[in-house]
Measured scan of single mutants.
Amino acid sequence: RVIAMPSVRKYAREKGVDIRLVQGTGKNGRVLKEDIDAWLA
């Protein structure tokens, strides 16, 4: 299970990103909004 705040999950869904593919850089591997942006870049 991916650790991410609900707002980040929603952001990823809106961008069409599968959050399971994104490498989290936050505490304990948490996926941050910046990680979604970096994955899209």
Rank of each mutant, 00 (worst) to 15 (best):
R1H: 15
R1Y: 05
R1M: 13
R1S: 08
R1G: 11
R1K: 15
R1L: 10
R1D: 13
V2T: 07
V2I: 11
V2A: 05
V2W: 03
V2L: 07
V2H: 04
I3V: 14
I3N: 13
I3D: 13
I3G: 14
I3W: 04
I3R: 12
I3E: 08
I3A: 05
I3H: 06
A4D: 03
A4E: 04
A4W: 02
A4T: 05
M5N: 13
M5K: 14
M5D: 09
M5P: 08
M5E: 12
P6I: 05
P6T: 09
P6W: 11
S7E: 14
S7T: 10
S7V: 07
S7G: 09
V8E: 14
V8M: 03
V8F: 02
V8N: 03
V8Y: 02
V8S: 03
V8Q: 02
V8G: 01
R9V: 05
R9F: 08
R9T: 06
K10T: 10
K10Q: 05
K10I: 10
K10N: 12
K10F: 11
Y11K: 02
Y11D: 01
Y11W: 04
Y11S: 02
A12R: 01
A12L: 02
A12T: 02
A12S: 08
R13K: 15
R13F: 15
R13T: 10
R13Y: 13
R13N: 15
E14W: 14
E14R: 10
E14T: 09
E14V: 14
E14Q: 13
E14I: 10
K15D: 00
K15Y: 12
K15G: 04
K15H: 12
K15W: 09
G16R: 09
G16Q: 05
G16S: 08
G16H: 09
G16E: 08
G16P: 00
G16W: 08
G16N: 14
G16Y: 07
V17N: 00
V17P: 00
V17R: 00
V17I: 08
D18W: 06
D18G: 03
D18A: 06
D18N: 13
D18K: 07
D18M: 07
D18P: 13
I19E: 03
I19W: 08
I19R: 01
I19H: 03
I19L: 12
I19T: 04
I19S: 02
I19G: 01
I19N: 01
I19F: 06
R20D: 13
R20G: 05
R20S: 14
R20V: 07
R20H: 14
R20P: 03
L21K: 09
L21N: 11
L21R: 06
L21M: 04
L21A: 11
L21W: 10
V22A: 04
V22M: 08
V22L: 06
V22G: 02
V22I: 08
V22Y: 01
V22T: 05
Q23M: 11
Q23N: 13
Q23R: 10
Q23F: 12
Q23I: 14
Q23K: 14
Q23D: 09
G24Y: 03
G24F: 02
G24R: 03
G24A: 09
G24V: 03
G24W: 02
T25N: 14
T25I: 03
T25S: 12
T25D: 02
G26E: 04
G26I: 03
G26V: 03
G26H: 04
K27L: 13
K27T: 11
K27E: 11
K27G: 12
N28W: 12
N28Y: 10
N28T: 06
N28S: 15
N28H: 09
N28G: 15
N28M: 12
G29Q: 08
G29A: 06
G29W: 06
R30N: 12
R30H: 14
R30M: 13
R30D: 07
R30G: 14
R30I: 11
V31L: 06
V31T: 06
V31I: 09
V31Y: 02
V31P: 03
V31M: 03
V31E: 00
V31W: 01
V31H: 01
L32E: 08
L32F: 09
L32H: 10
L32R: 14
L32P: 00
K33V: 10
K33Q: 07
K33E: 09
K33H: 07
K33T: 11
K33S: 10
K33G: 05
K33M: 10
E34G: 11
E34N: 15
D35K: 00
D35L: 01
D35A: 01
D35F: 00
D35Q: 01
D35V: 01
D35P: 00
D35N: 08
D35M: 01
D35S: 02
I36H: 00
I36Q: 00
I36D: 00
I36V: 10
D37K: 06
D37V: 08
D37L: 05
D37Y: 06
D37I: 08
A38L: 14
A38Q: 12
A38V: 11
A38N: 14
A38W: 13
W39S: 08
W39M: 11
W39L: 14
W39T: 09
W39P: 01
W39F: 12
W39K: 08
W39N: 05
L40W: 08
L40I: 13
A41K: 12
A41P: 05
A41E: 13
A41Q: 15
A41G: 13
